[in-house]
Design a protein around this nucleic acid. Structure first.
Length: 571
RNA sequence: GACCCGUUAGCUCAGUCGGUAGAGCAACUCCCUUUUAAGGAGUGGGCCCUAGGUUCGAAUCCUAGACGGGUCACCA
């Protein structure tokens, strides 16, 4: 569709009547765009700027329907209120021209509204020469007139004036089937939003959810903070980082995989309730629940424990559901998820047996666990510690079965390097994860605040890296250990995956459907193509070429000039 | 990273046995002053994802690659 022709930038049509250039570098080389550009030019010739400034938004369509609902109730042959004058603005989505009159549907952020315009009620000649000929689906217009009701009972604006607000030179996808190509939907999200109203609804919903989460924590006395996105040591999670380079300092930096260690430094500094809503970056695979950049909230609450966090999390869900007026039971694919609080709480090892069906003796024995995993066709590293074996068992046999929101509590300590040990059972971390629809949504725990224990845990992670080649094991962060050395109040902290939460609440099953611009490979089509040449005369002037009607290759548009060149070539 | 599926007009899609490109919508030229995916008549529009190969002949068969979707692995 686009080809790059950097040296050309005038807007004069070539001898074939084509407008090769728009903007500075792009050429629009298809008939629809050419047609639309020439319409924009014809508007200019008529003294109408196709891109006028200082247009104000008209009455929102929702207000139009509310405000003029009375017109429908009028007791008259023709239901209308000519005394009113109202202006609507929006993008044309449908046009139905019937000779000397036309209907169109225009869309603003609230939805569609119908307008009616005809030859006799617009200025002399305007309908035939401008409105009918030069306005088309995709254009944004401003319509002024009075409300009336059509024969089929639809409240409609009868136009006395119809102006262009912005001329679209790209055609919209087909009106009935719309846009279904996933690739275009993600790459050109704006088109997806124009053609698929539910997409806009999802992202409006996402915005509201984030806003409510923010308000909830502010109302509970939490302070929103921003910590670095570029870390000298990747920390706070087990994940592979993106690496970048800081020229001025001459050092590599890691895009953050989690804000945890910085937020806890703030707790040491005396901020007793903090939260951060922002992006994390992980250099890992992509699928329906993973995007390389994703959004989470992490919050840290001094003088509280993980039981308080679970209660706070339930309160947060209740708050979101109440504010959004969502029913407590939501459909998610073929699942029904019951969000009634309190959520179920099941200890980790108990979940292995009662939910996962793992025999009790296997659930607590490293060797038996490994054997059991192998029996079930799962590859495992023989050096795994009991906690890691249990984590494998959990992922395999439990996670997918947790449909209704469920807190899994009391995790093995060796897979919880940042959480506090339980005083009675030092093999257990005072930690929980929240699952729903078979997916992990949140992770929270009593923060480890013993600096020497923290140092040993980092060391154990480094050792695990040695032993099992775990690339995602944590790095030693001595500065963080030093911070803990100054004393951190007993604190509980939690992270919630915002993207996944939005998926659950909007019944979307791909993370790409809740991220406005999901990660995509570069698009080949936008790169410069090799020069095309006419098959007969070898002409490489792009604007004089057209593709062959059948088969491959290009030919000159101007056949006479082509023949002349071919002759000269023979000499 | 592995496997499966897809890529044809601006969009949504057909394309039979390998015989040289089709529909609907959109566009263009007409008709039409209350339509609802408006309707009617006509016209134009294709590097069939790319590069090789087989063949007299490839959208179609084979190989490699690009991009997208899905499943698995990894992860949140």
């Amino acid at each position: 569709m686009f080809r790059i022709l950097p040296e050309k930038r005038d807007l004069e049509p070539n001898p074939a009547g084509q407008y090769p250039i728009l903007g500075e570098t792009l050429i629009f080389d298809n008939q629809y765009i050419q047609e639309r550009i020439s319409k924009a030019e014809r508007l200019r010739e008529e003294g109408i700027n196709p891109y006028p400034a200082n247009i104000t938004k008209g009455m929102p369509s929702s207000e139009f329907f509310k405000h003029f609902a009375y017109v429908k109730e009028l007791d008259a042959d023709e239901k209308k209120d000519e005394a009113q004058t109202v202006t609507l603005t929006g993008r044309i989505k449908f046009i139905r021209i019937m000779g000397k009159a036309a209907f169109a549907k225009i869309e603003d952020s609230d939805g569609l509204v119908q307008i009616y315009y005809n030859r006799d009620d617009l200025p002399e000649g305007y309908y035939n020469n401008i409105a009918k000929k030069l306005f088309e689906v995709g254009d944004i217009v401003e319509a002024t007139g009075y409300p009336f009701v059509t024969q089929t009972g639809e409240l409609t604006l009868h136009c006395k004036d119809l102006k262009i607000v912005s001329k679209a030179i790209m055609p919209l996808p087909e009106k009935f089937h719309g846009l279904t190509d996933q690739e275009i939907r993600y790459r050109q999200r704006y088109l997806d939003m124009i053609m698929n109203p539910e997409v806009k609804e999802t992202f409006v919903m996402r915005s509201k959810i984030v806003s409510l989460i923010r308000r909830f924590f502010e109302d509970h006395g939490f302070l929103e903070v921003e910590t670095p996105m570029m870390h000298p040591i990747p920390g706070g999670a087990n994940a592979k980082p993106f690496i970048t380079h800081h020229n001025a300092l001459g050092v590599d930096r890691y895009l953050r995989i989690a804000p945890e260690l910085y937020l806890k430094r703030l707790t040491v500094g005396g901020m007793e309730a903090v939260f951060e809503i922002n992006r994390n970056f992980r250099n890992e695979g992509m699928d329906q629940t993973h995007n390389p950049e994703f959004t989470s909230i992490e919050f840290y609450w001094a003088y509280h424990n993980y039981h308080d966090l679970m209660k706070l999390t339930e309160d947060l869900f209740d708050y979101i559901f109440a504010e959004l007026q969502l029913p407590k039971t939501l459909t998610y694919g073929d699942m029904e998820i019951d969000f009634t609080t309190p959520f179920a709480k099941v200890p980790f090892v108990e979940a292995l047996t009662t939910i996962g069906g793992v025999p009790a003796d296997v659930a607590t024995d490293r060797e038996k666990g490994i054997a059991y995993l192998k029996e079930n066709g799962i590859e495992v590293n023989d050096n795994l510690t009991l906690g890691y074996v249990q984590a494998e068992l959990f992922d395999e046999f439990v996670e997918g079965k947790l449909i209704n929101p469920t807190f899994i509590t009391d995790y093995p300590i060796d897979i919880s390097p940042l959480s506090r040990r339980n005083d009675e059972n030092p093999e257990i971390a005072e930690r929980f994860e929240l699952f729903m629809a078979g997916k992990e949504i949140a992770n929270g725990f009593n923060e480890l605040n013993d600096p020497l224990d923290q140092f040993e845990r980092f060391k154990a992670q480094a050792d695990a890296k040695e032993a099992t080649g775990d690339e995602e094991a944590m790095h030693m962060d001595l500065d963080f250990v030093r911070a803990l050395g100054h004393g951190m109040t007993p604190t509980a902290g939690e992270g919630i995956g915002i993207d996944r939460l939005v998926m659950m609440l909007t019944n979307n099953h791909s993370i790409r459907d809740v991220i406005l611009f999901p990660a995509m490979k570069p698009e080949a089509a936008l790169e410069e193509k090799p020069k095309n040449a006419c098959k007969k005369c070898g002409n490489t002037n792009e604007e004089e070429l057209k593709p062959a009607k059948k088969g491959k290759g290009y030919f000159c548009i101007d056949a006479a000039a082509c023949a002349k060149r071919a002759k000269e070539n023979k000499k």
